[in-house]
Write a protein that binds this DNA or RNA. Structure first.
Length: 188
DNA sequence: CAGTGGATGCTCT
DNA sequence: GAGCATCCACTGT
């Protein structure tokens, strides 16, 4: 299921190439995690992207080197994890929206306070809570512990749709998913 | 099921 | 001071 490690060099390309390839990859944090089944792409010319208006204190990691984490707080309550991509000088990122839990299910259940496997990581806020990811991981490299990111070994059936929870550039088809997975945040 | 609204904190205008 | 890349509980079918 899990292939070779995705290095920071891997992320030195456009998010529009990388995001669909991430479906089926394995993401672990401290040995806990699973298979990425849903991501969204955000580029710098995108009004919905945090990098659209240029660098700020919050978005510094998104303007940093690719292959690192960009973690931000959402609605004052949740954390959301992005994988920073960059073709040259552009600040782009893939928002990890859902995992199929495969490693450390009991740790996830404790942190989430729910039992059902499909409720553990079926949303960007949920998966950060399940894995224990917070602002403390903002800017950390993805190719070193406690992160572990492994390429997929086979190509899954890909679902494509519009992004969720945004108010600008709503029509861009930059949401990618593992077609038919029961672990998505929403059906396509 | 579908739709609504509250919680909550921080960033940027 | 508004608005937000969310989640959950609650309502009404």
């Amino acid at each position: 299921m899990a292939g070779e490690r995705l290095t920071r060099e891997y992320f030195a390309r456009s998010v529009h190439e990388i995001a669909p390839e991430l479906i089926g990859a394995t993401l672990l944090f401290g040995g806990v995690g699973g298979v990425i089944v849903e991501v969204e792409a955000y580029d710098q010319d995108d009004p919905a992207s945090h990098s659209f208006r240029g660098p700020t204190a919050r978005t510094a990691a998104m303007f940093g080197p690719p292959g690192h984490a960009y973690v931000y707080r959402s609605y004052g309550v949740h954390w959301c994890l992005n994988l920073v991509c960059s073709p040259g000088e552009r600040a782009e990122a893939a928002l990890v929206r859902a995992l199929e839990p495969t490693h450390g299910l009991e740790a996830m259940r404790e942190r989430r306070g729910v039992e059902a496997a499909r409720a553990l990581c079926s949303g960007p806020g949920k998966l950060c809570q399940a894995l224990g990811i917070t602002r403390a991981q903002d800017g950390l490299p993805l190719d070193e512990p406690p992160f572990e990111l492994l390429a997929r070994e086979s190509e899954p059936a890909l679902a494509v749709g519009t992004r969720i929870g945004i108010t600008r550039a709503v029509e861009q088809p930059w949401r990618y998913g593992f077609a038919g997975s029961p672990f998505l945040s929403r059906r396509f």
